[in-house]
Structure formats: structure tokens, C-alpha cells
Design a protein around this nucleic acid. Structure first.
Lengths: 87, 87
DNA sequence: GGTTTGATTCGATCCTGATTGATTCAGCCA
DNA sequence: TGGCTGAATCAATCAGGATCGAATCAAACC
């Protein structure tokens, strides 16, 4: 899961999704990669459980998974951070 | 920096260092990789600023950098997590 | 049905980074 | 000084994942 975040493209996607739900076309406007490549990275994020999808007519909306923050923090190895976030 | 953590070997090293300062020989006893490979991963962690070193006679002690947790949290893209940890 | 648009999948290539073995460096001890 | 040990570095290999181009799928509109 950390590897899923440790990629510039996917980081940008997540950072963008942080502002709220976005359709793929919207993400494409802000993350300058080919559409099929974006689709690939979205799949990686999906497989990591960091984002969820919902089809809306012709479009597909992506949202940051509700427990993404908690799961990411749990994945970090440093104890101080774990103590800060875990609760 | 996230890429530095997103590797099983380096994750194990950081997790081990979480318990306190360790010399390389000690790490080697708990992380089953070749010594030169361990040295390589330690260099990656050093370059990422996640660990610090201190020579003690023939040995070199590794410690998690004091600001590692803060810097890692800052590197995560999800806003909720940033809010939780930042302060 | 046929076409268009949004999005994914497939196959092939390229490239970064992990791993390996051997070498080199730094400090201790006889 | 010479030999030994802990640790880092170097050059080369290899694998996994990112990237690209083309094809495919799904829904909407005509």
C-alpha cells in the first residue's frame, strides 16, 4: 500500500482526490498523463484499497476510501507516528 | 522518501530501529539479507534523511531520525491524515 | 442498429531499482 | 606493520513496474 502512494502520479491523484470526489476526466485535466496510464494507476490505487469508484452515467467517480488515512498511518513503521495517529 | 519506506527490507529495518538505536550487526541478526544489501538499504534510508548514523569504534549505530515521523506524515497525500498528525 | 465518448484492458517495451559478488575502506589488536 | 573484522562501495545482473500504442468495453445519443 505504501508502494501505491510512493509514485508521483498516484500521489498527485490522491492529492487531487483529497479535495473531493472527481471523475476520471477531471483527474486527467490535472494530472498530465495518458488516459490509459491514468487508468492503470487508478487500478493500483483501487487494488490497494485507497480509493473507491462509483459509476455515474457515462463517467466514473473516484473517491478517497474513508479509512485510507488510518490504513496508511498504520502502514508506517515509525512508532511515534503510530502513537500519534492510531487511536 | 515514501519510496524509501515502501520496501519490505527497509520497512523491517525502520521497524527494528523503532525499538531504539541498533548497530548494523544487530540489524543483520534480525533482517535476513546479505550484509552488502543491508548496507545499500541503509544508505537509501540515510539519503532519505530517515535515519542517522554514529560511529562507535568499529561499529556504526543507526537511529531513526528525530523528525522522521513528522516528515513521513507530511509526505502523505491524504488531508485527514495530515490534519491528524501535522501539529 | 451505428456512432460517439468515457474509461479500461491487453501486449510489448523500457527503465528504474533491488540484488549479487567482489572489492575497498576504517578501526581494532597482536 | 600486518592481519582481522565491521561496514560501505562498486560494477554487473536481473526483475518488477511504469509507460506506450492499440484494441476493447460500457453507456449515452442519434
Amino acid at each position: 500500500m505504501l508502494a501505491a502512494v510512493a509514485d508521483p502520479v498516484r500521489w498527485a491523484v490522491l492529492d487531487r482526490l483529497t479535495d473531493g470526489t472527481q471523475c476520471v476526466c477531471d483527474l486527467q485535466a490535472h494530472v498530465p498523463v495518458a488516459s490509459n496510464l491514468l487508468s492503470y494507476h487508478l487500478k493500483v490505487l483501487r487494488d490497494a484499497g485507497l480509493v473507491t469508484t462509483a459509476r455515474r452515467g457515462r463517467w466514473i467517480d473516484y473517491t478517497v476510501a474513508p479509512d485510507a488515512a488510518a490504513r496508511l498511518s498504520a502502514a508506517l513503521p515509525t512508532a511515534p507516528l503510530r502513537r500519534t495517529v492510531a487511536s
